[in-house]
Amino acid sequence: MVPSPTLAVNIAPLRDVHKALIRLRVNGETHEVYVPVHKTLLEVLREDLNLTGTKHGCELGECGTCTVLVDGEPVLSCLALPIELQDRDIVTVEGLAERGVPHPLQVAFAELGAAQCGYCTPGILVAAKSLLDQNPRPTLDEIKEALAGNLCRCTGYIKILEAVELAAQRMTGNWKRETGNWGTGSGA
């Protein structure tokens, strides 16, 4: 997050920062921001565009929490520089619902309890959207592979896997989920 310290930064941090006017297309809307060029996409989204739905867990590219989509591909926004992403198509969790109607992934996550604390959820949702957009009928292993870069400490991942399968099933009609003998719960 913070660039390596230089004498210039130490002595006059406000004067010597190089800023640039950057045009970003986020969730279909175009924004112009005048920000230091080293500011990460994560920071610009949260601090300059008030899109606080994108969270951060390490700011070092290790946990996947800050994942957003750039031209449909998952990208760690804590490692991405806006100046390199001008006019690209950026999607955050705020862009998943359309005119207030939630994406099937969001509905499935809510219904199955796949969001406990909900902090890793935005990153996982957009990563899952990218998967389903490219592979509408993923196998369980393909879902695990696609989400392996996103850590979650609450759910044990089970409900998330079930929710992605459920959303995929709903989005593709008659396709059957693999669920059967894993992640099962039974009442008393």
Partner: peptide, 11 residues
């Protein structure tokens, strides 16, 4: 579903 579920999945 949890009372806060939709808020959590929409960010």
């Amino acid at each position: 579903i949890k009372v806060d579920a939709m808020a959590k999945v929409t960010g």
